[in-house]
Simulated scan of single mutants.
Amino acid sequence: MSTGNDANTPAADPRSTGHPTNGLNDTVHQRHRLGILTIAAESERVEVAYLRTALELTPGNLSRHLAVLEEANLIQIERGYHGRRPKTWIKITQQGQNSLRAEINALQELLRRHQSSAPKAR
Rank of each mutant, 00 (worst) to 15 (best):
D6Y: 03
N8V: 04
P10T: 11
A11L: 12
D13T: 14
P14F: 05
P14R: 07
R15G: 13
T21A: 15
N22P: 02
R31A: 05
R31F: 03
H32W: 07
L34I: 01
L34P: 08
T38G: 08
T38P: 06
E42Y: 08
R45F: 07
R45E: 11
V46P: 11
V46Y: 06
V46M: 11
E47G: 10
V48M: 09
A49E: 12
A49I: 03
E56M: 08
T58Y: 03
P59F: 03
G60V: 08
G60M: 09
L62R: 09
R64E: 12
R64G: 14
R64S: 14
H65C: 09
H65I: 08
A72F: 01
L74K: 05
Q76R: 14
E78Y: 02
R79D: 06
G80C: 14
H82E: 15
R84K: 13
R85E: 07
K87W: 04
W89D: 01
Q94R: 10
Q95R: 13
G96C: 01
Q97D: 13
Q97K: 09
N98T: 15
N98V: 15
N98E: 15
L100S: 03
A102S: 08
I104T: 10
N105D: 15
A106Q: 05
L107P: 01
Q108K: 12
